[in-house]
């Protein structure tokens, strides 16, 4: 009875949904559909000549040595970013969870970097570690390190990982802190009475109880490292030196926007789309069920 009164207009729910659907269609379905379409063609930069080639673009991409190198590099990069940002966030959260003076100030400061735009954060790191003018570089050179990440791929990767992780620490910190605060104090007190030290309490009680948070963050961070680090890489290294810091998302940009090879770039986008779908599916399937308490 009530329902009929509220939804007597069949159009209304659709109208209410329309803005959201329109935004999704315009900003997601249309571009995604276009990417799928483009991935089946070879075309010139100006869009004059179109040749339908079935899956040739995919075949070329998946057999390209550079592309496979980029896949491994992206996995390495994402692993490093996830590990560094989650690891340091967990340490900070555990410390902030203790009863210390000025804890609020401390927490606010840690959350701050999240408000900085990725490109701006990257530029800050760029100046700190610039081979000729950065103060951190001067320190490293004084320590005898041959510091030149414009040429040394390993160093360039380290800088990009650092800049990308720094951004994400705040986010992880918030979730870990919330997770820590929801752990029942009585369990920890009981363990203390049984004589468990703080390290032991952490590994046997806190860490397992945090596992839903950890797993959620793991997925979020991997997705972040895969897809949201473009600005950081672009501002810092543009994928160089060589291809030392080129990730999958950056390669889509450089092949499509810079090299104007839209077929290959679209094929790579479609592959990335499949990866996101897989990651999301994993998250939905396992995030609530498989993590034990």
């Amino acid at each position: 009875m009530h329902k009929r009164v509220i939804f007597n207009d069949k159009l209304l729910p659709y109208l209410l949904l329309a803005p959201q659907i329109a935004v999704t269609v315009v900003f997601f379905f249309l571009p995604a559909g276009q990417a799928v379409l483009y991935s089946l063609y070879i075309q010139d930069a100006f869009g004059h000549d179109w040749q339908f080639v079935w899956f040739e673009n995919f075949e070329v991409v998946l057999t390209d040595r550079d592309y496979l190198d980029t896949v491994w590099r992206t996995i390495l990069f994402s692993g490093a970013v996830t590990f560094v940002s989650m690891g340091s966030a967990l340490i900070l959260a555990v410390m902030a969870d203790k009863h210390i003076r000025g804890a609020t100030v401390y927490k606010t400061l840690i959350v701050w970097p999240y408000a900085v735009a990725p490109a701006v954060a990257a530029v800050l790191w760029y100046f700190i570690f610039h081979p000729s003018i950065g103060f951190a570089s001067k320190g490293l050179v004084a320590l005898g390190v041959n510091w030149d990440w414009k040429l040394d791929g390993g160093q360039a990767m380290a800088i990009v990982v650092l800049a990308a992780s720094w951004k994400q620490v705040s986010y992880n910190f918030l979730f870990f802190l919330a997770g820590l605060q929801s752990i029942p104090k009585s369990v920890l007190e009981a363990a203390s009475i049984d004589g468990a030290g703080s390290t032991r309490r952490f590994w046997t009680i806190v860490f397992p109880l945090l596992s839903p948070t950890t797993f959620f963050l793991l997925v979020v961070n991997v997705v972040y490292a895969f897809f949201d680090t473009f600005g950081t890489i672009h501002a810092l290294t543009q994928g160089g030196p060589g291809k030392a810091t080129e990730t999958l998302i950056y390669k889509v940009y450089s092949d499509g926007v810079q090299n104007l090879d839209l077929g290959s770039s679209s094929a790579q986008s479609v592959i990335l789309m499949l990866i996101v779908v897989a990651l999301t599916a994993i998250q939905f399937r396992y995030v609530e069920r498989k993590v034990h308490y």
Binding site: L151, G240, P241, G242, K243, S254, Q258, N259, L260, D261
Partner: peptide, 13 residues
């Protein structure tokens, strides 16, 4: 332009 980038990359390596 793309070839120039390739040559720069290989030179850098």
């Amino acid at each position: 332009p793309e070839i120039r980038v390739v040559i720069q990359e290989e030179l850098e390596r």
